[in-house]
């Protein structure tokens, strides 16, 4: 399947909280406010993983969320990318090496883009989406 221009201008994101402290959630919500208005680029949050192109994962993946994260990832239709938002998902952050983690995120599902920060700024999240889209393009180009 060839990726078309449509993907560049229409990326729907599904947000998954795998045990985050809500800091990243607040910044994700801030990123969809009228001030940043990502709908300009066709980016919007959707309620179901079946509708999504991007999976936004926040949090360090606690034990109870591992199974849910895997299932949500498997439910997303191809082509898809995973974005890990925040320090927790990247390395465990303040919860590094904790006994109740199964994470970080890339121990559970393949991650394409990491957005750093605790929490990251909305600009960083939007930039992450742009990078994710470029990666999606490259991966599909290699496949074709």
């Amino acid at each position: 399947m060839k990726l078309t221009k449509s993907f560049n201008r229409s990326l729907w994101a599904f947000h998954f909280n795998s045990g985050s402290c809500n800091g990243c959630e607040i910044e994700i919500v801030a990123a969809i406010t009228p001030r940043y208005d990502p709908e300009r680029f066709g980016i919007k949050l959707v309620g179901s993983p079946k509708h999504a192109d991007i999976l936004l994962v926040t949090g360090p993946v606690v034990k109870k969320m591992r199974d849910r994260l895997e299932r949500v990832y498997q439910q997303m239709p191809d082509p898809k990318v995973v974005m890990c938002v925040g320090a927790c998902g990247t390395s465990g952050g303040p919860f590094y090496d904790s006994y109740n983690l199964d994470g970080p995120v890339d121990d559970v599902i393949p991650v394409d883009v990491y957005v750093q920060g605790c929490p990251p700024r909305p600009e960083a999240i939007i930039h992450g989406v742009v990078v994710a889209q470029q990666k999606l393009e490259r991966l599909e180009g290699e496949k074709a």
């Binding site: 399947m1 201008r9 680029f41 066709g42 239709p77 082509p79």
Partner: peptide
């Protein structure tokens, strides 16, 4: 807000057609 371009729904529909 500035909002999406007027042809946004066409882009969305074209994208959905290409998804799994």
């Amino acid at each position: 807000r500035i909002g999406p371009p007027l042809r946004q729904p066409f882009i969305d529909a074209a994208k959905l057609m290409r998804k799994e």
